[in-house]
Design a protein around this nucleic acid. Sequence first.
DNA 1: TTTTTTAGTGTGTTCGAGCACATTTTTTCT
DNA 2: AGAAAAAATGTGCTCGAACACACTAAAAAA
Lengths: 346, 346
Amino acid sequence: MDKKYTIKDIAQMAGVSKGTVDRVLHNRGKVSPAALEKINEVLNVIDYEPNLIARNLKNTKIYKICVLLPDPEIDSYWLPCVNGIQDAVKEFKPYSVNISIQYFNPESKKSFVNANNAVLSLEPDAVLIAPVFHKETIEAVKIYEESNIIVNTFNNQIESNTVKCFVGQDLYKSGRVAASLMNLILSEGQIAIVHIDESLKNAVHMQEKEKGFRSYFEEKKLNNFSLTTLKLKHPNVESKFLNFLEENPHLKGIFITTSKAYQIATTLSELKHKKIALIGYDLIEKNVNYLNRGLLHFLIHQNQKRQAYLGVSTLAEHFLYSKEIPETILLPIDIINVENADFYIY
Amino acid sequence: MDKKYTIKDIAQMAGVSKGTVDRVLHNRGKVSPAALEKINEVLNVIDYEPNLIARNLKNTKIYKICVLLPDPEIDSYWLPCVNGIQDAVKEFKPYSVNISIQYFNPESKKSFVNANNAVLSLEPDAVLIAPVFHKETIEAVKIYEESNIIVNTFNNQIESNTVKCFVGQDLYKSGRVAASLMNLILSEGQIAIVHIDESLKNAVHMQEKEKGFRSYFEEKKLNNFSLTTLKLKHPNVESKFLNFLEENPHLKGIFITTSKAYQIATTLSELKHKKIALIGYDLIEKNVNYLNRGLLHFLIHQNQKRQAYLGVSTLAEHFLYSKEIPETILLPIDIINVENADFYIY
DNA sequence: TTTTTTAGTGTGTTCGAGCACATTTTTTCT
DNA sequence: AGAAAAAATGTGCTCGAACACACTAAAAAA
């Protein structure tokens, strides 16, 4: 059972040479109908799976994968991604895959375009993009498409049929998860949905979360809650938020749609305002601190590290083992509180 | 940069033959100090990493890994494990690792002993055990130890210094997570900790969870709660539980320490008793059904599939790539409610 | 009929590590 | 010094897939 057959075995069984078997397996033609039938007969009986080790050994082609990532020194949100990519680099180091990262400034479209040009000049076989700039990404994808470069995206979803794959989270559903948790902490009252530093580049992202959050309360007909949306932007985050708090003294909960929940928590902790329920995103250090201090109640783990890792490894495995690339890879929406946070921090 | 060097390259650079380099790399001796130094000099400058593909190609030794698992036809709890192992089988099929499962009856110690003997006769290089019988496992481990067979365990932890590795969850902490969620749903009242079908084989398991659960309430000095332990056993689960309900009409919440929360949910649903908070373990179909119907509030995902997969893959990667085997691999304590359950079901 | 073309088939080499075995060099012993 | 033993080093084959190239046989053209 499950004996491993080689091309040589098949050749012997079919009474032909391994060259002929090889031609059949790769339909390279130049095979007589008689030989074809004999080999197919054998192939139908046994369960041949080519030895991937041997296949890759000969493969002299080195596949190039480029990752386009915002510079984590400018926005530390992306730091875990670098770790995920490094994991992939490590894993595929012995194989004929070359993975490199190209950083860009997440606040500059020009920087993003430049990074794309730099990547293009490297002539990669595939790219993994964090598409923070929507229009520019669509344009870049078109060029990659023309050069037959496989495009994979992660974190943000963009609608483009030339993008092979997206790795990320169902943002709408994650908003719903946040809502269900909020509904558990609170039984009634006013809840604020806070978008911090919203810009074109992440507007869709945040809005999806808001939609999901609201849908939960609407669907359940929870009329004893009132939902307010609040947009805050650097450098007026704190002042504007303080204004809002003054205008809404009975605020019971806040859902922060980004990883910047700690900013809200900081302000509240200074006010000794402990009674407001806070739910945010991402296990960054500052957030976890407030989780431990009891000021932040839940975090939703977007697991960017794994997103980046899967984005790269999917491509690498496609090249090495001709694995199919799935259209979307949705990561689970991990619910984190102070009791289980430890296990998600690597 | 990062050019890949081969043994041949090193040999050329050091001015010796690849045979000598090979002897140095594997300290097989029979190398003159002069040659040793020349080769070490080269090795210090470059960053040599053997090509694992080529290494495994020649490897004629086929490593045998046996998994000892309760028969999922007798206890469906173990079904996900089979899937996890099958994933590993698939992944390592092209490599020289042979993975086989030996089932035993989780209700019969004799069957477990027999299964161990069957495994021993296969002369495996490593075994992965689901140690449901404590004493018998310790004895089996001793014999494996004598035969130089690496032992890995998962799901249940047993204290034995000859076991190389354990893959599982921090049960105490998972009890605490359950408690924190219970404390969110309820603000006061009586909570029952229910052990269903407790036996020697899983007593420690359940008690750890109970300890964790209780520790949360004690630590937080939540005196407005009262905790009661209830042990139920087949075939009197329902009748005894009904008795308990009658005796404790003000019961507010139930923490079920096994995957059998659905049994409690069934009874409660028949009584149209919707107000009791239920928290249990494991994403089995029956549990998820009650989650969707709103009768079960939270499930803690023990991820047996991944436990089994990691148990096997850790061993396989140890043999193939001489990766170190970690002492413990703790999986995260996933919090599941009706909103995020979909993403955890494969 | 002989030569050329082409369809069909088989052979041999490559990839890199690992290891058995052959060969060379050095040391030891008579 | 010369033979034998031991140490050091080099050579060559293997694993399985892939592919270039050599070869045979039959069909087409001269």
